[in-house]
Design a protein around this nucleic acid. Structure first.
Length: 568
DNA sequence: GCCGTTTTCGGCCCGACTGTTTTCAGTCG
């Protein structure tokens, strides 16, 4: 089992935490954390970068030392420094460091004074009332820790679509004529959101916080000051509301949107010029030289405007400086939806209703891609029903104007990589999506071979939801996406970004890798109802996060061009 | 531990809020 990037990142994060607790150099700690973020965001595995002879120290935030450590980890599966750190602390302290109010200093104190290492240890000293003996621990912290220990350890992230519903309700409640915007990872359109960062402008910041406290869905108030209020909603979603004066709006939006790494990169640019950047503006000495808008701040720093989806410190700052940012795909570029179901196989609407719904959105075409027979639950199509459906679509197209319904199928990839319908049936279609809906737990190698074999069938135009993940419910199946992308490029097969908000599959990183490899993408909703066409925006979000431009996406093309791209 | 249009040493983002303080350290984002 090769070491995954996520595992290397986790090792670096753990090492950072333990170094911090031991009072190590804070900048060394930060270096490990930054490296972890960089590794997580890599479109290729560290293993294959090494195999290709690439110099890891060329990656941002990775120097000679960390490059060597990454190579060691890939080679041995172990991170020697982490093992040493753990040994020093008798197995590590990560268990309690995640508790609210416990940072590195207090964790160290607890260990030094009371030998507390685990949640169990902490529970014991709390019960014995020994926490008061330690300087810096008062009754309030003790109470909060006791409460946190009772709660399940849910560090939960919320699906973007769920966070969006919460955010829209909250903004509706808070809206008061002034500016109000939800920033943070929500504005960067990450596929999951940990909390909502709400920014408001106005003279009376305290009034906004006060109003927030009257919101009906509050479970808990964590902090409430004159400019900042933090609450937890009943859903468990945390909300940080921050009020700033109008002239600081842009700087505050920038700061609150993040990512943290992106902000640090911008602040470093400011320092280079002898300036200071904070949430109130860009300052030369005490003079504010920018801050009312984000555009203004970027311009002063010598950068093109960077769309929020790109602000992950993955090279966007350098490209903005060279004015070479990609022109990202947007919803208005989309001319059709290539993954659409009807009531023939489990959808809620007729083919005609889906076509009408798509036309109302301004689309020029949809591909009707119902399930194949293997998906018995949805009454998937066999060759005979597929033939009938084809005839129905032909008749429909004669009647319809302003939209074309392409004939398609979402054909199941069987266990051995063969397809659920014979070529004789598939060859009558305009669009064939091949998807995995079974045998999720094959080994990485077998699963990858299976999917690539399916793509080798020249009838297949698109690989559907390529990793099979359901956010928060089912992890992606084991699959070597680098091999899949390489095969897609050679075979001329397209990859799907499935925009269904539970899927968002490919994710942003894989989309970036596909684009970088020259593989074209289809962004499609997998709609089972007319309303579900609106999911397209979530797919666009992830594509934009993956630096995808309109010309990288096949369903931005006019129908004639699309037809050529679908032929292999 | 990283990094460089003040380059191989000496910097490294910045402010709000809380609790425990008696002027501020720790945590958090």
């Amino acid at each position: 089992m090769p070491v995954q990037n996520a595992e290397i990142a986790a090792m670096f994060d753990q090492a950072a935490e333990l170094l911090e607790i031991q009072g190590g150099n804070q900048f060394r700690v930060r270096a490990y954390r930054r490296a972890a973020r960089v590794i997580e965001g890599l479109p290729e595995s560290v293993r294959s970068l090494l195999a290709a002879g690439r110099d890891l120290s060329e990656l941002p935030g990775i120097g000679k030392d960390l490059a060597g450590k990454m190579a060691d980890i890939v080679k041995t599966g172990h991170f020697a420094l982490l093992d040493t750190l753990k040994k020093k602390l008798r197995g590590g302290l990560g268990d309690i460091a995640a508790l609210p109010g416990l940072g590195p200093k207090r964790v160290k104190l607890l260990y030094d004074k009371l030998k507390v290492r685990t949640r169990e240890d902490l529970r014991r000293v709390l019960k014995a009332g020994r926490l008061q003996d330690v300087k810096g621990f008062g009754p309030t912290i003790a109470k909060r820790l006791a409460e946190a220990l009772e709660k399940p350890r849910a560090e939960k992230r919320f699906k973007l679509s769920v966070a969006e519903a919460e955010a829209e309700a909250l903004v509706g409640f808070l809206h008061d004529g002034g500016r109000i915007v939800v920033a943070g990872s929500y504005r960067r359109r990450r596929d999951t959101v940990g909390d909502l960062d709400v920014l408001v402008t106005g003279e009376d910041g305290a009034a906004v916080g006060d109003k927030l406290l009257r919101y009906e869905n509050i479970a808990e108030v964590l902090a409430h000051g004159p400019t900042r209020t933090t609450i937890i909603l009943r859903s468990g979603l945390q909300v940080d509301a921050r009020a700033v004066p109008e002239e600081s709006y842009g700087a505050a939006l920038l700061y609150f949107t993040g990512s943290k790494a992106h902000n640090i990169a911008l602040r470093a640019l400011a320092i280079d010029r002898g300036w200071k950047l904070n949430e109130y503006g860009l300052f030369a000495g005490r003079r504010r030289i920018a801050g009312a808008t984000e555009e203004e701040v970027y311009k002063k720093l010598g950068l093109a405007f960077i769309p929020p989806e790109l602000r992950e410190d993955r090279g966007e700052v350098a490209l903005a400086r060279a004015n070479q940012l990609p022109r990202l795909v947007s919803l208005s570029d989309m001319r059709g939806d290539l993954h659409v179901h009807s009531n023939w196989t489990g959808g809620t609407a007729t083919i005609e209703a889906m076509a009408e719904g798509a036309r109302a959105l301004g689309y020029a075409y949809i591909a009707l891609t119902d399930h194949s027979r293997r998906v018995a639950m949805a009454h998937g199509l066999d060759p005979a029903r597929l033939s009938r459906q084809i005839k129905e679509i032909d008749r429909l197209n004669e009647r319809l104007s302003g939209i074309t319904v392409l004939k398609g199928i979402e054909v199941d990839i069987l266990k051995d990589g063969s397809l659920d319908l014979p070529d004789s049936a598939l060859s009558k279609l305009d669009v064939v999506i091949a998807s995995v809906h079974s045998y999720f737990n094959l080994s990485r190698e077998v699963q990858t071979d299976r999917v690539i074999r399916a793509m080798q069938n020249r009838q297949v135009s698109i690989l559907g939801h390529p990793t099979g993940r359901l956010i928060g419910e089912r992890a992606a199946y084991e699959i070597d996406m680098e091999r899949v992308i390489a095969a897609a490029r050679v075979l001329g097969c397209h990859l799907e970004i499935n925009a269904e908000p539970d899927r968002l599959d490919l994710n942003d990183i894989h989309a970036y890798a596909a684009k970088a490899a020259g593989v074209k993408l289809a962004i499609s909703t997998d709609a089972h109802s007319v309303n579900a066409f609106s999911y397209m925006r979530f797919g666009i979000d992830q594509a934009r996060r993956g630096w995808v431009a309109a010309h990288d996406v096949i369903n931005t093309r006019p129908l004639g061009e699309l037809r050529k791209l679908l032929r292999r």
